[in-house]
Design a protein around this nucleic acid. Structure first.
Lengths: 133, 133
DNA sequence: CTGGGTGCAAAGTATTTGCATGAAC
DNA sequence: GTTCATGCAAATACTTTGCACCCAG
């Protein structure tokens, strides 16, 4: 378990219990959508508001503490900001795995060919995971 | 201008004027979100309903005639279904370009390494287009 | 004709906002 | 003490649904 109190503060975010719980849930689960996140939080804070979830997601995205991952045919999920990576999405069970793919050479080529300065990628590969084949 | 009457019929979709106009708009503009699509359509059919836009988008996705493209920090756009390709998104002006990137070798490798059977990719590269640099 | 599409209004779902209270620092 | 977060309720935004009427095939 990491010390998220300081990480939050470094991002100019007060370390409230609700916020810590959200961050902890994302750390443990990797990726969560608003619905499942709220479902988890309500167990811990019986009076937590959905508005609190949304407000926190939004401000943490703004401060670059977490990131939204848009998925095909599914609700967006959120994850703690880490080094750039891609995602594997299982169409059957919905599992999401992080995967490191080095895109540097490709980006370099596309930048040149298309005269487009690329600074970010969103890459989701969908199919069937090991268990669902 | 293509003959979209037959293309629609081949996908079991009746070729109504509204539908043809939507398809034509997507053909001309490449990528559109619901809002801009409705904005265009209302000019042509003063009494067209937003519900018609949504119903058509949904059924055309279902029949695989068009596809949704989810973009970071922007509303989803829709495009006519074509061969698999990636997208370049300009963060400044919002322009979207199609780009062909051969991902076969990469997919092959990832499939093996992660024991994950991949059959689809969603790849958006963001940055600044030629005009916005 | 017949099935499916359109437009309208209403309902449903998702997300944001305003404000009073309360907690973090 | 001051600033910011929380929770609630209301408001807004987005999308879907039901139904009567109409048009494509």
């Amino acid at each position: 378990m990491k010390n998220y109190i300081n990480s939050l503060r470094e991002h100019n975010l007060k370390a409230t219990p609700q916020r810590l719980a959200i961050v902890d849930a994302l750390y443990i689960n990797g990726h969560m959508n608003t619905e499942t996140l709220y479902g988890l939080m309500i167990q811990k804070f019986s009076s937590i508001s959905l508005a609190t979830i949304y407000k926190n997601i939004n401000i943490m995205i703004e401060k670059n503490f977490i990131q939204e991952v848009k998925l095909p045919h599914a609700k967006s999920v959120y994850e703690l900001t880490k080094t750039s990576h891609s995602h594997l999405l299982c169409k059957k069970c919905g599992a999401i795995e992080d995967v490191e793919i080095n895109l540097d050479v490709m980006i370099e080529n596309i930048s040149k060919t298309n005269q487009f300065q690329i600074d970010k990628t969103d890459f989701v590969l969908s199919g069937n995971c090991k268990n669902c084949q």
